[in-house]
Design a protein around this nucleic acid. Sequence first.
DNA 1: ATAGTTTATTGAACTAGGTTAAGACCGGCC
DNA 2: GGCCGGTCTTAACCTAGTTCAATAAACTAT
Lengths: 194, 194
Amino acid sequence: MNTATILSAIGRHISLTDDETAFFTSLLLPQRVRQGEMIEREGELTRCFIFVNAGCLMTYFTDKEDVDHVIQFATTGWWTGDLHSFTKQIPSIYTTKGLADSEVWLLPKASMEQLLERIPRFERYFRIIFQNSLITQQHRIIQSYSATADERYQQFREKYPSLEQYVPLKYIASYLGITPEFLSKVRRRLMEKS
Amino acid sequence: MNTATILSAIGRHISLTDDETAFFTSLLLPQRVRQGEMIEREGELTRCFIFVNAGCLMTYFTDKEDVDHVIQFATTGWWTGDLHSFTKQIPSIYTTKGLADSEVWLLPKASMEQLLERIPRFERYFRIIFQNSLITQQHRIIQSYSATADERYQQFREKYPSLEQYVPLKYIASYLGITPEFLSKVRRRLMEKS
DNA sequence: ATAGTTTATTGAACTAGGTTAAGACCGGCC
DNA sequence: GGCCGGTCTTAACCTAGTTCAATAAACTAT
């Protein structure tokens, strides 16, 4: 498992010396995640921030009626995990599992703190990552309130074409905030139109 | 208009020397916003990031059917504005206006960049701000998908009791993703119960 | 190959929330 | 004072999306 992907992702926002690169990579823990395997579990503390090196993960919330709600998919090049649990060290309300056999880099909380202290440019890096993520989440909220399920599905397909290969429809439905049955109807309507 | 509020908000996350404080405050532009006045408008570039010193603002999105969707309220101590427009310098899709006579500090984009360059600890400050905001938005998405309008309204009241004094019900309805008429029903049901 | 499990689809009955329209209330303002 | 524009509520009807139940198709594991 090599560091090319993660270093290039970071290189898009900040540049590092060779020493800094070496220090950073020394903090990373490689891990494999099999399809269906859970890497973080509801109720446990999130000890690591997760970078997807290959494959695909999803993070979901299980409500009081035991229904899962997908809050995020993450493919190659994305960070994921429960930020709330990670930063405050409280039990997570989310579960993260592999949608395909995947490889991830784990950055433990203590390592993250060392990293930010020793190379403050990483503050910048994560500031930019979180800022972009925030913009995306705001769009998602708007969409969920102003677009119909049909529109949301079409925009999802346009925005994340690469996900369709990994993600079962029922999880896409969940991500869109509808039932799998209704997604079926939506898909049918779209097929009939074209 | 004095800088005590904004400095204390920042002091909660990073500490500054007197020189740094002076430099930071020299970048801020004070502005008054009257109730109903728009401080950022859909279609225009967002030139400044906004800190609410007193009063209350709201940011909303107007959809193709001309319906407004409130995406954020901001009272004393909160940053607001359209991050997407601000960072990429593209026309904003949001409008921000005063819900009450308010005072804000404006931080122009160029000043923000100078600030981050000269005092990299501000990268840390904004990293933390965005990270917390991201956590909040994720909760909001979960809620919109897993809670009923009744539950969302009650949780809103618990979470932001201070907003009720400023915010007309129709905007609360919009924030919750329902119509004002339906919020009326919800409120009535709650009254009858207790 | 076969049985068992998970995923996707279909249709009928249902409900949370939307729409439309009307009236009550309230505050500003000439 | 009286009018006017905005806010809130009520009620009757409407619809996007849910629930439930049955079936088909696709994986998995023996």
